[in-house]
Amino acid sequence: MSLPAIAIHSLVKRFGETTVLQDIDLEIPEGKVSCLIGPSGSGKSTLLRCLAFLEEPTSGMITIKGEALGFFENAGGKRERLPPAQIRTVRSKTGMVFQQFNLWPHMTALGNVAEALKTVRKVPKAEAEARAMAQLKKVGLENRAGHYPSQLSGGQQQRVAIARALALEPKIMLFDEPTSALDPELTGEVLNVMRDLAAEGMTMVVVTHEIGFAATVGQQISFLDHGRLLFSGPPTEIFAKPRHPRLDQFLDTYLDRGASMLA
């Protein structure tokens, strides 16, 4: 049994008085696509942001490839914060793609992808740009290298954002609703890039409302509801009838929304 890519133990996240994540236990398998689904406000983004250490867990442990993220338990069983440099090292095993792309607007597509190589990894400019270009090529945007984000469509921006995350050669890619901010006709190009990535064996954690993507590409589906992980398993099990009543309810409203769009 190989080490899970990510192991989440008894994760709790509170914002002040509100508990947003309650006792989450989950293992993200290596080399697979793991999809987080659930109603809006159920805590999916917060969970993903904990994995990227953009949110600090209130309690519980997260390990990335066996290494503690952010905190560790000392000999006395007390939680202690790791030094910033070490946090950055563990963090660098993951790449993150945001719903709103978050491309740096003052840099070209190529600049966005090359930036961390130059600034963080200290790769010489020419080599960083060559590597960035290769990533842009992978997402089909080598001919947009000199464009600024404001000159790109949403789908193109998101593909650049994926290339940017890939440039640092992460072991795990985290996606937070990568197609939710896109016009419907632009979601396909982003999902295709993600399918290619999955086919290469990248470990991926994807928060998504694209149930079709989750059902066809996802290999582990986890359903969050009110900050609890209700269940997790392969899509064939999760989506097979009889389904969990909360999932049924969720899928109904999801389909209702789709149907009402057609009307």
């Binding site: 953009l54 963090r91 790449g95 978050n102 491309l103 607007p105 961390a116 963080v120 954002a161 940017r164």
Partner: peptide
């Protein structure tokens, strides 16, 4: 925008 800073954080910027 906060997201632009977060994008730097997750790519290992100090």
């Amino acid at each position: 925008p906060k997201g632009l800073v977060e994008a730097a954080d997750v790519t290992g910027f100090n």
